[in-house]
Simulated assay, not measured.
Amino acid sequence: MLSARGLLKEFLTAALAIIKTPLFLSNKLYSCVLKPIFDSLYFIPGTQLEQLEASQRFKKEYENSYGPLHLNIFNGTFNGACSAAQTELKPLLVYLESSEHDDAAVFNQKILCDSALIQLLNDKFIVWAASSSTFEGSKVSDKLHVAGFPFVGVYTFVHNRLNSLLKLERLYSLDLTLKKIRAAGKAAEASLFQIKKEREAQLATQRLKQEQDRAFFESLRIDQQKEQQKKREEEKSKVKEEELFRENNLLAQARTRNLIKLPEEPEQHTPGAIELRIHFPNGSSSSRRFNESDKILHVYHFAAGELIEDGKCLIKNFSLCSSFPKKTFEDKSQTLKEVGFTPRMSLYLINEDD
């Protein structure tokens, strides 16, 4: 007893046969109205499973009837086989059999199981096979305009167009079948070679662009890192400069206060007065009179005050020394008389930060 799906399929098949005759409706009405309805069977539950199993069922039925088949038949739909052929750049061989033709058994027993043919097909082709009695087999038969069985067709895809290289629509001898399939395979290689070169050129262009993009973004990343590092260093330098400025400013203020607190400068020819000249590293010099009772510390305060320019200390750490005899005055608590200063004395300021 037929299932509801089978009854629906038989009904639509019969209706299609009637409608296609010019006695009832025009071809235009058939193609625009009823054919889409028939095609919608692909989406009726059960029929999609049937089309997916068409190639699998062929191989299973073949092996049940003739024994193991070592031919690699594409496990999927016809459209899937087409996609695989395009992706792998191989020709597509389509084999359709019909149970209504006695030649199908001869082809399956004598030709399809031939080891040379199987090796050729497994190495060079994507093979899709089905019975025309299956729904998808019937659809593919109509699509390829098959006029006879057993059918062997070889196709290539050039710029997404299906090109026919071989159509065998009846039984031929094994030698002739093998010869024709080999010739079709060579013709396919010639057409697919150009596509392969174009694809390789496209891939090379894509890889080059990707490498250029990677190089650009890597360069951009390095530049950004350098810029960030530069900003961090500038910020650190700015903070350090600000700290140094504050320190220098505090030191200048302290030295200015010390300069103000210096003992009063004695008049010239005052007994015990010492005329002191200090020479600076830049070649300039400053002079002042001190009492012999003044301390070395007062001389340092005077020299430090002379090193202030525009509110900044030109030299932070320094010492004072005489040239003859050569002596550095480090004990700032001693008086000028105690260290042996003469009425006229020259000292040299040494920058200890150099």
Score class of each variant (00 low, 15 high):
residue 225 Q to I: 02
residue 221 R to G: 03
residue 225 Q to D: 08
residue 224 Q to P: 07
residue 214 R to D: 11
residue 250 L to K: 09
residue 242 E to H: 06
residue 208 L to C: 08
residue 242 E to S: 02
residue 231 K to I: 09
residue 206 Q to A: 11
residue 235 E to R: 13
residue 232 R to P: 09
residue 229 Q to L: 10
residue 220 L to P: 05
residue 217 F to L: 00
residue 212 Q to N: 08
residue 229 Q to W: 10
residue 210 Q to W: 05
residue 254 A to K: 13
residue 251 L to P: 01
residue 215 A to R: 10
residue 204 A to C: 06
residue 235 E to I: 09
residue 208 L to T: 09
residue 203 L to K: 08
residue 230 K to A: 09
residue 246 R to T: 00
residue 242 E to Q: 09
residue 224 Q to A: 14
residue 248 N to P: 04
residue 240 K to N: 11
residue 249 N to E: 05
residue 233 E to K: 12
residue 205 T to G: 08
residue 222 I to T: 14
residue 237 S to N: 15
residue 246 R to N: 00
residue 228 Q to V: 04
residue 228 Q to Y: 01
residue 245 F to I: 09
residue 219 S to P: 04
residue 225 Q to F: 02
residue 205 T to Y: 00
residue 246 R to L: 09
residue 232 R to E: 12
residue 220 L to H: 07
residue 215 A to V: 06
residue 229 Q to D: 10
residue 238 K to L: 15
residue 234 E to I: 07
residue 251 L to E: 01
residue 244 L to T: 10
residue 224 Q to E: 11
residue 205 T to I: 01
residue 232 R to T: 05
residue 240 K to V: 11
residue 216 F to V: 03
residue 228 Q to T: 03
residue 218 E to Y: 00
residue 230 K to T: 00
residue 212 Q to K: 07
residue 247 E to M: 09
residue 245 F to M: 15
residue 248 N to S: 00
residue 220 L to E: 06
residue 210 Q to I: 11
residue 213 D to L: 14
residue 220 L to G: 03
residue 244 L to D: 11
residue 239 V to T: 13
residue 211 E to Y: 07
residue 218 E to M: 10
residue 251 L to A: 01
residue 227 E to C: 09
residue 238 K to E: 14
residue 211 E to K: 09
residue 203 L to R: 06
residue 218 E to T: 10
residue 211 E to G: 04
residue 223 D to I: 08
residue 237 S to D: 14
residue 243 E to F: 13
residue 221 R to E: 05
residue 247 E to T: 11
residue 233 E to R: 14
residue 243 E to N: 11
residue 249 N to D: 00
residue 234 E to S: 02
residue 215 A to S: 03
residue 252 A to N: 07
residue 238 K to M: 15
residue 244 L to F: 12
residue 239 V to R: 15
residue 245 F to P: 06
residue 236 K to F: 13
residue 204 A to S: 06
residue 239 V to G: 06
residue 252 A to Y: 02
residue 208 L to Y: 02
residue 232 R to W: 08
residue 246 R to M: 02
residue 229 Q to A: 13
residue 234 E to M: 02
residue 203 L to E: 02
residue 202 Q to L: 12
residue 221 R to Y: 06
residue 206 Q to V: 03
residue 231 K to D: 02
residue 238 K to T: 15
residue 241 E to P: 01
residue 240 K to D: 07
residue 204 A to K: 03
residue 222 I to Q: 13
residue 220 L to F: 08
residue 210 Q to P: 00
residue 216 F to R: 12
residue 234 E to W: 04
residue 207 R to F: 03
residue 247 E to H: 06
residue 244 L to E: 13
